[in-house]
């Protein structure tokens, strides 16, 4: 064997041995216990400090408020949504007092009108809705039933109301097409309002024979896309029928 190879291989083997010795001593002892990671790191993650106590912890002392809230529209809204994280409070109730938001600006975070919010979710326009008064002067946050049941539909169906107001259907009241029982205002999902069921309903105004005012667009109910229901093409809150004609 040539001299060069002897020395080169000697060096290489020495380096490899050194590498494995160093590796052995530097490897974290818990590495690879459950997978390609340090099992000890799970301990670090698990021991992170808790800030939100969770609602069950609140009920231990504030059962009365919890019972009230669970019967109200705010059932399901956890205490710490409004009262900030309270784990510290559960550990030392006198030292750490959870705050309670009293400012008018707080409630619109959820209840301010935003067209992206799902329809049916109660929303108000903070500018026009009893300006100047803190929300809690009329609504108990633990039972926020409005002092006066809303008579119109807009408070909850603002997005629809705002769409309808710029459409040809603006002058029509919601009750023209939907019959809502009083119960709907109190238990919206239990008593759903009615919806029109057939073409004839729209035909009352839009058929050629209808006795409605002459500027209302008419169609021949027999030939006009028979087999379809009107609202399969026209969104009733913004029918867009006239728009098409102009084009």
């Amino acid at each position: 064997m040539p001299q060069q190879i002897k020395y080169l291989f000697g060096l290489a083997i020495a380096l490899i041995i050194i590498f494995f010795i160093v590796r052995h001593y530097l490897m974290s002892p818990s590495f690879g216990l459950f997978g390609h990671y340090r099992a000890a790191s799970l301990k670090t993650v698990v021991s992170q400090e808790i800030k939100y106590a969770g609602e069950i912890a609140c009920t231990e002392c504030h059962d009365d408020i919890f019972t009230l809230k669970e019967k109200s529209y705010h059932r399901g809204v956890a205490c710490e949504v409004c009262h900030s994280p309270a784990y510290a409070h559960t550990q030392d109730p006198s030292e750490h007092k959870p705050p309670a938001p009293r400012k008018r600006a707080y409630c619109p975070l959820c209840h301010g009108y935003n067209p992206t919010r799902p329809t049916g979710f109660p929303q108000i326009d903070p500018v026009t809705h009893n300006p100047g008064n803190p929300c809690i002067s009329c609504h108990n946050p633990h039972d926020p039933t409005p002092p006066v049941t809303p008579q119109g539909c807009e408070p909850c169906h603002t997005q629809i109301a705002r769409t309808k107001i710029v459409s040809p259907h603006a002058p029509l009241p919601c009750t023209q097409c939907h019959i809502a029982k009083e119960e709907h205002k109190l238990n919206p999902r239990v008593a759903l309002p009615s919806k029109p069921r057939n073409r004839e309903f729209c035909g009352q105004c839009h058929s050629q024979e209808a006795e409605s005012s002459p500027e209302i667009p008419r169609v021949d109910m027999k030939s006009h896309y028979s087999g379809f229901l009107c609202w399969e093409c026209h969104y009733p809150h913004h029918p867009e029928a006239r728009l098409k004609k102009e084009e």
């Binding site: 001299q3 060069q4 190879i5 020395y7």
Partner: peptide
């Protein structure tokens, strides 16, 4: 040199080949 100081012709030929 890593101690490999052999400069014989044979060893130099090996260098080239290696």
């Amino acid at each position: 040199t890593l101690g490999a100081s052999d400069l014989s012709e044979k060893s130099l030929r090996f260098d080239k080949k290696a």
